Amino acid sequence: MKKGIHPEYKEVKVILSDGSEVVTRSTMKTKDGVYKAEVDSKNHPFYIGSQKMMSAAGRVEQFNRRFGKKAAKK
């Protein structure tokens, strides 16, 4: 490896939103080697199942109501 072109690879303590800690290695620049994660798999809507899903048919229907052609008056 060439010297002086690679970022420093060091241990980082990651503190998850529930208070648990994980020690890993990273090139992330942190103060005092600690990273506090605000979002993780225990509180992100995608992982906990509270994410609002909308079917594709519902999206098409919503689009047509909003931008679709108006019915011609006779």
Score class of each variant (00 low, 15 high):
residue 32 D to F: 05
residue 56 A to I: 10
residue 40 D to I: 06
residue 20 S to D: 06
residue 50 S to G: 09
residue 41 S to C: 08
residue 53 M to E: 10
residue 37 A to T: 08
residue 42 K to Y: 00
residue 26 S to C: 05
residue 47 Y to P: 04
residue 55 S to R: 06
residue 25 R to W: 08
residue 39 V to G: 00
residue 38 E to N: 13
residue 39 V to P: 00
residue 39 V to M: 11
residue 47 Y to M: 13
residue 30 T to S: 07
residue 23 V to S: 10
residue 32 D to R: 09
residue 50 S to A: 01
residue 25 R to Y: 10
residue 35 Y to A: 14
residue 49 G to T: 01
residue 26 S to M: 01
residue 52 K to Y: 03
residue 50 S to I: 14
residue 50 S to Q: 10
residue 46 F to S: 13
residue 32 D to P: 00
residue 36 K to S: 05
residue 41 S to F: 12
residue 48 I to W: 02
residue 25 R to E: 15
residue 45 P to V: 07
residue 35 Y to N: 08
residue 23 V to Y: 06
residue 46 F to K: 14
residue 18 D to C: 04
residue 55 S to M: 03
residue 32 D to I: 01
residue 48 I to P: 02
residue 41 S to A: 13
residue 29 K to S: 13
residue 44 H to N: 14
residue 20 S to C: 04
residue 43 N to G: 10
residue 54 M to L: 09
residue 50 S to D: 15
residue 28 M to D: 06
residue 56 A to M: 11
residue 33 G to F: 03
residue 18 D to H: 04
residue 22 V to M: 14
residue 27 T to C: 13
residue 39 V to L: 12
residue 21 E to S: 11
residue 19 G to N: 07
residue 33 G to Q: 07
residue 46 F to L: 14
residue 37 A to Q: 15
residue 52 K to I: 11
residue 19 G to T: 09
residue 44 H to M: 05
residue 37 A to N: 10
residue 31 K to E: 15
residue 37 A to S: 15
residue 25 R to G: 01
residue 30 T to E: 05
residue 30 T to A: 07
residue 31 K to R: 14
residue 21 E to M: 06
residue 56 A to K: 11
residue 42 K to D: 05
residue 20 S to A: 04
residue 49 G to K: 08
residue 24 T to I: 07
residue 34 V to C: 06
residue 43 N to Q: 07
residue 45 P to H: 08
residue 35 Y to E: 07
residue 56 A to H: 08
residue 31 K to M: 08
residue 36 K to F: 10
residue 40 D to G: 12
residue 44 H to A: 14
residue 42 K to I: 06
residue 21 E to W: 00
residue 28 M to A: 15
residue 56 A to T: 11
residue 51 Q to N: 07
residue 41 S to I: 12
residue 35 Y to S: 06
residue 20 S to L: 02
residue 38 E to Q: 14
residue 22 V to E: 15
residue 36 K to Y: 13
residue 49 G to D: 06
residue 49 G to V: 03
residue 52 K to M: 09
residue 35 Y to V: 04
residue 31 K to W: 02
residue 32 D to T: 09
residue 40 D to T: 05
residue 56 A to Q: 09
residue 19 G to D: 04
residue 43 N to Y: 05
residue 42 K to P: 00
residue 53 M to T: 12
residue 49 G to L: 04
residue 45 P to E: 12
residue 51 Q to S: 11
